[in-house]
Design a protein around this nucleic acid. Structure first.
Lengths: 204, 204
DNA sequence: TAGCCAATGGAACATAATGTTCCGTTCTAT
DNA sequence: ATAGAACGGAACATTATGTTCCATTGGCTA
């Protein structure tokens, strides 16, 4: 298949890739920046999405889906529960999911479908976490919400280059995982984060 | 002393406090928000500062000064070098210095004086860190720049309430410090951050 | 007491940024 | 050859926001 239709199909992907790159780098970027990066005109965007919010919702939903996929991969791992959990965290950092979900939250109004996806993502993550916890691999006093906030912190790291940023994020993820693995250390101070505190960032 | 002059003197402080609160919560906040929070008119601001950048520079310089003060306190501590270092980190988190320096960097052009202050701050922090390192209290492979990036990550944490935010930041600072204290653990992966990478965020 | 002036409030102004629409053009399929 | 999908990008509408300007207030001094 060639011609106009093929270009359109290719553009679907090109636009999504560009949008992801642009909004990961700057969540408040103008829509024109996406068009420029994709090498298309603005109407190519508006033909596909009703508006900016629509595009952001799509990106966020995609991010949650890869998060879910990684969690399912971790759950399918029959080996050491701690390793499954740690691997899950590393893959989520690599996919830069947090930049697509947390950093975009609040810039658009979520729809029902997105809320459902978000709920499912949280459930799966909890199962990955709990399995490691029940195996006695985790420091006392930590919970799933802690892992969300840890991912948030890592997503805040920006060092110019995308590759270098990923590298440095893994550096601090390693430190955090080491701290979470200290099963005989005292619980970290302060009340642990609640699910509500982690969810509050979503608009409406 | 009373009357107009006293009000002006009070306003100096009120305006600075309001500006700190507003820009810590939102580095891109409009200047009108500061005036509103301070309960003064806009001209009360423009009488004191040539423009928005001027105010931001002032806030940033103040932040660096408290950072320097805390580092000097740590250096004056003759006790355990690790405790001095850890206390320094905790106090910097409490003062929310990072929100006034890193988060504001890039939104204004630093002047010569601010650059000098910044350099001095880095020197002192390095001495606090090195003393702990020479005492053998630190995990191999970590350096001062690591502590900067750790503070950045913590500053990215926002949980509505200011008190709660401080609480949760201390939670993860504790985890990070625990990981930094594992003197017989392997060095964290990836090339450590360089001074240049930590400094790059400054405009010009 | 009259008058000067620092200090202020806040409307008005000037821009800049940016989401969205619209129209002429291109290219494919029939 | 023609209809219509897909597109480019200028034009438009709106909003956000830094800065200026002027009338007003209140204390201090001659």
């Amino acid at each position: 298949m060639n011609g106009r239709k093929a270009q359109a199909a290719r553009n679907d992907q090109v636009i999504l890739d560009a949008a992801r790159a642009v909004f990961v780098a700057d969540p408040g970027a103008p829509i024109a920046a996406v068009a420029e990066r994709a090498g298309v005109g603005i109407s190519a965007l508006y033909r596909r999405y009703a508006g900016k919010e629509d595009l952001l919702r799509k990106l966020c939903a995609d991010g949650l889906k890869t998060y879910i996929a990684e969690a399912e991969t971790a759950l399918a791992d029959e080996g050491d529960p701690w390793n499954a959990f740690a691997g899950f965290m590393r893959r989520v950092v690599d996919a830069d999911v947090q930049s697509l979900t947390i950093n975009l939250a609040g810039t658009f109004t979520p729809d029902e479908d997105l809320r459902r996806t978000s709920t499912r993502a949280a459930e799966l993550a909890e199962r990955v976490f709990d399995r490691a916890a029940r195996a006695g691999a985790l420091r006392p006093g930590v919970n799933v919400a802690d892992t969300s906030l840890i991912l948030d912190q890592l997503a805040a790291l920006h060092l110019g280059d995308e590759a270098r940023t990923a590298q440095i994020r893994h550096r601090y993820l390693t430190l955090m995982l080491d701290a979470l693995r200290l099963t005989s250390a005292p619980p970290p101070p302060g009340p642990p984060p609640t699910a509500e505190e982690v969810t509050r960032r979503w608009k409406v």
